[in-house]
Design a protein around this nucleic acid. Structure first.
Lengths: 129, 129
DNA sequence: CTTGACCTTCCAGTCACTGGAAGGCCTAGC
DNA sequence: GCTAGGCCTTCCAGTGACTGGAAGGTCAAG
C-alpha cells in the first residue's frame, strides 16, 4: 500500500506518517520506484500511535508503549505506570487551566465591555493586585 | 537597572526578557557599555506581560492587550473580546483534557498492573474498540 | 592585576508536526 | 508516443515561546 492509502485509512496526514518513519516509529518497505510500501503491521502501528497521541501521550511515551506492546514478556505494571504518569500530567494541566478559567471568568464578568476605556481586565494585568 | 535586577524583580528569566525585546514587546535603553538599561515603564510592561502569560494569553494576545492598555481611547469591549476568545480556548482545552482523563482513568482502573503481560490499555490502543 | 559575577551576541535545540519547493513516477486519454 | 494531473520523493524552513550553551566584553572587589 502507498502512503496516500495509508493516510486515508488511518486518518493521519502523509506528512505525519513520513515524520513517524523519520523518527523510527515505523519502517515501511520500499518499492523499486522508491515509494514506501506499507504492510498491515505498519498500518496497525500507525493506528496504535494515532490513538495513543489522541489520548495525549507524547511521542516518546508512544515509543515506549509500542515497545511494551511488542514485548510478549512485558509486565502490565509497566504499561500502567506510563498511563498513570500521563494521567497525573493531564490532571495538572486541567488544574492549571481551571485556575486560569476561574480568574478570567471573574475578570470578564467585571468588565463592562462597552465603548469606554475603563477596564478591570487591564487593571488586573497592570497591577497584579 | 540591569537585566539581572529586572529578572529578580519581575520573576522572569533574563533569557525571556531578552526574547521579549527581540520580538519587540519592550525596548529598553542601552548604556555606553552596551548593557540594557530598564526604566520603570519597561519593568511595568514586563510585569503586565508576565501576568498575561500566566493567564495563558499568547504572546500576540499580550501584544494586543499592551497596545490597548496604552491606548487611552480604547473601548473596554475590545479587551473583553480578547479575554472571551481566550476563555473559550481554555474551555476547549479543558474539555479535551477531561475526555482524555476520563478514558485514561477507565483504562488504568481496568489494568491489573502486575507482572503479567495482559493489559487492557495496550488492547485499547491496539484495537481502538 | 586577577577573579568572578555580570553582561553581550549568536547559534542550536525543544516538540510534533506543517508548508512548500523541486523533481521523479504512473496512469488515463488522445 | 505524448501530455496532463495526480501521485510520490527529498530537503529545507517555520511554528511558539522559550531555553541552553559558547565565546567574549565589562565591572567591582580584593
Amino acid at each position: 500500500m502507498n502512503i496516500g492509502d495509508v493516510a486515508a485509512r488511518t486518518g493521519l496526514p502523509t506528512k505525519t506518517i513520513r515524520y513517524y518513519e523519520d523518527i523510527g516509529l515505523i519502517t515501511p518497505l520500499r518499492g523499486e520506484n522508491g515509494y514506501r510500501r506499507f504492510r498491515e503491521a505498519d498500518m496497525h502501528k500507525l493506528g496504535f500511535v494515532g490513538r495513543a497521541r489522541a489520548l495525549g501521550f507524547s511521542i516518546e511515551e508512544c515509543r515506549d508503549l509500542l515497545a511494551l506492546y511488542e514485548d510478549e514478556d512485558r509486565a502490565s505494571a509497566d504499561v500502567r505506570q506510563i498511563a498513570i504518569g500521563h494521567l497525573e500530567e493531564i490532571e495538572r494541566k486541567i488544574a492549571a487551566l481551571s485556575d486560569m478559567r476561574d480568574t478570567l471568568k471573574g475578570l470578564v464578568h467585571a468588565c463592562a465591555g462597552d465603548h469606554r476605556p475603563n477596564c478591570p481586565i487591564l487593571k488586573e494585568l497592570s497591577d497584579g493586585a
